[in-house]
């Protein structure tokens, strides 16, 4: 078993990046799955949202926003450019970085679950608002998913609640390995 502290700083850095990118990539793959026990009414946990929230918790607002933008762009590619996921994920990154968990909130899985619950309700609200915005967006030539007010409201209730419950329940699965890894590898620049 190799100890991480024995590795050279350069190797540690590269390994750190690999784990970060790898975990985000794993979340992208998990988005496509609906495993038994991981879905409610055909809706799975929002893994990208969990990842962005955990990434931003102890980082700067800028880092949180960049992570949200990059992953939102990729998710847009995997579904559709409109409604965009970049807005909601940037908001999640920025808010999660602003919370300053280590200062105000205790370090346990209840608090991370609560944060993810709130943020995913917020993220689904942003998406729902994009659906009910007036149809000017249709003129952009994108494949515009038209929904009526009542349809959006029904879908919003179902999606926001299921996604928030599942995401918050599954967030510790990502939170523990990732935070303990980041604390071990770059403890000196982690709390800047």
């Amino acid at each position: 078993m190799i100890k991480i502290s024995d590795l050279s700083p350069r190797t540690r850095q590269i390994l750190g990046w690999l784990v970060t990118v790898g975990s985000a990539f794993l979340c992208l793959l998990l988005l496509l799955t609906r495993w038994p026990g991981m879905e409610l009414l055909g809706i799975g946990p929002n893994w990208l949202l969990i990842w962005v929230a955990i990434w931003s918790l102890k980082r700067t607002v800028f880092q949180g926003a960049i992570a949200g933008l990059a992953l939102g762009m990729i998710q847009d590619g995997m579904t559709s450019l409109y409604p965009t996921h970049t807005l909601s994920l940037i908001l999640v990154g920025v808010l999660s970085a602003r919370i300053q968990k280590q200062r105000y909130i205790q370090e346990d899985f209840i608090s991370i679950a609560l944060i993810v619950f709130g943020l995913s309700i917020l993220a689904e609200t942003v998406t729902a608002i994009q659906y009910i915005l007036p149809g000017d967006v249709a003129s952009l030539g994108l494949e515009y998913p038209t929904r009526t007010w009542s349809e959006t409201w029904l879908d919003y209730q179902r999606i926001a609640l299921c996604s928030a419950i599942l995401s918050s329940l599954w967030s510790p699965v990502l939170y523990y390995p990732l935070t303990s890894w980041w604390e071990q590898t770059n403890s000196e620049q982690y709390y800047d």
Binding site: F25, L32, I66, A70, L71, M73, I74, G77, M78
Partner: peptide, 21 residues
């Protein structure tokens, strides 16, 4: 680098991710 990769994945509609999956 991050935004560039994300842009390429967005433009290719995540083809690399889907193929890997």
């Amino acid at each position: 680098l991050t935004l560039g990769t994300a842009w390429v994945l967005q433009q290719t509609q995540g083809a690399a991710i889907l193929d890997f999956y």
